[in-house]
């Protein structure tokens, strides 16, 4: 697991300051079919390589981030504010 995470707001911080939610997936529409929701809630890829996750900087800026890390090398490639990534005001 990556131990230093580059927070776009706070700079490089240790993983202890963060809470990991899990894979950053696109949420289906509320009225999407049960299969899409089942997939969204229960099924996960387990990729070897780049993986995007939601991380919350709980003990820092308290922003949700999208952290892209490599599951093989543990290297964090990118991190960005989740709200900004969605095109909302940060």
């Amino acid at each position: 697991m990556a131990s230093l995470v580059p927070c776009p707001h706070c700079g490089s911080r240790p993983k202890e300051e963060f809470t990991i939610k899990g894979a950053a997936l696109a949420r289906p529409a509320p009225d999407a079919d049960p299969d899409s929701w089942f997939h969204y809630v229960y099924l996960r890829e387990n990729p070897r390589g780049a993986y995007e996750e939601y991380w919350h900087h709980t003990a820092g800026c308290r922003r949700w981030l999208i952290v892209c890390r490599d599951t093989v090398t543990h290297q964090v490639n990118t991190s960005q504010d989740a709200a900004a990534a969605k095109g909302q005001a940060a």
Partner: peptide, 19 residues
């Protein structure tokens, strides 16, 4: 704390939230 306390990274007048 794991914040970089070097003066260049964390100059006087700056605030950070950390553990």
């Amino acid at each position: 704390t794991a914040v970089d306390l070097n003066q260049r990274a964390f100059p006087p007048g700056r605030s950070v939230a950390t553990l």
